[in-house]
Design a protein around this nucleic acid. Structure first.
Lengths: 202, 202
DNA sequence: AATTTTACTGAATATATATACAGTATAAAT
DNA sequence: ATTTATACTGTATATATATTCAGTAAAATT
């Protein structure tokens, strides 16, 4: 979809906000009032631009006849589920995506970017079992004690994070597994994100 | 909320359908067209009746200024979260409800009735930790190996279910806890439901 | 260098729309 | 028995609203 200008984005935001607030779309005059325009034609032309770029549809002749396009309306988005394969990075590349599941805002306390399908039992004492879906927020800002998605070359794992200086410890929650020691500057080492929630489908 | 007449229900349904179809509420004339009325005042009076009964609000002077009330709009339903208190049944009585969280259809494989907030670690080896939310489907039809919500008098617990004949075993997933043996016909024993999923909010 | 797009003001207008008023008739509530 | 609510038709109208036309000016594209 074609990119919007800053001003067009403002108008689109204004429409969304107005619908959320009132339950019905704004008139040209309403948009002018909200954004400080002095002519209804300012709103009109922006609306036609948004229509041309596919963000809204306009029912000609109808009052408040603005309809947000499917892509535009943030109804219930979907979140990708990514398999935790031993070899291969958990990127959002299409070939790694197992499926999409409907996403509900405020499902967890923090927002997140994708679900990781857990393989193995290395985190079982943390209550993370095989086939669980762990909600991952993409970030490299993690604290000691966080459960993180760490990549070492092509290997991806879910572990407790513990650092002191340049030394990083990746700690499993299972006595049958060993801790991993690694240096911050090690080539091929990267923190993909951290766990902010979990779903078990049974 | 006050009951609606058949005709008023038709009008309300018409409004909902119109919004779903077009993205904005209908005019009086639109309602007349949909329902075969010949006077805009027919729609007008029905709208005022719906307003009076609290199903919609009307912004006076605004075109299409109809807004569905919170109860009326079937946005995303909410599911109650119930605390697993040692004494006290996990019924859906108001005093037991901790909060409501937004519900997304097909979040789990099966549908469910409420979330149970887990206290204690008696099921930790099953990956069920303190404060987890276990999705419970109300049913007494459970199979061996199911994780069930069992009530014994006023005590409510989450355990593995195992039965042979009249003998029932409630098995914890933690060596520090003991199995519970009980008879099917025991007074005060009841299977409230079974677990069909889990959410951890971190 | 010429054209298109963006980003408006300002005025004018046809029409879409809410809404009031005048009736008619039946059912329900007080 | 009387009032109120339901369920409309039919007419009328003030105004809310979309939309066109005439401009101005800067930025982006071709």
């Amino acid at each position: 979809m074609k990119e919007l200008t800053i001003q067009q984005k403002k108008v689109l935001q204004c429409i969304k906000f107005y619908i959320k607030k009132t339950g019905f779309p704004p008139t040209r005059a309403d948009i002018c009032r909200e954004l400080g325009f002095k002519s209804p034609n300012a709103a009109e032309s922006h609306l036609r631009a948004l229509e041309k770029k596919g963000y809204i549809t306009i029912e000609n002749g109808a009052s408040r006849g603005i309809n947000l396009t499917e892509n535009t309306a943030e109804k219930s988005q979907t979140i990708p589920v990514i398999g935790l394969v031993a070899a291969g990075s958990p990127t959002l590349a299409d070939e790694n995506i197992e499926k999409h599941i409907p996403y509900q805002e405020s499902l967890f306390l923090s927002d997140f970017d994708y679900f990781l399908r857990v393989k193995g039992l290395s985190m079982k004492d943390a209550g993370i079992m095989e086939d669980d879906l762990v909600a991952i927020k993409k970030t490299s800002e993690v604290r000691n004690g966080d459960i993180v998605v760490a990549r070492i070359d092509d290997e991806v794992t879910l572990k407790y994070f513990q650092s002191s200086g340049n030394q990083i410890k990746l700690i499993p929650a299972n006595d049958d597994f060993d801790e991993i020691y690694i240096n911050k500057e090690t080539e091929g080492f990267f923190i993909e994100g951290k766990s902010v929630g979990l779903i078990r489908e049974n």
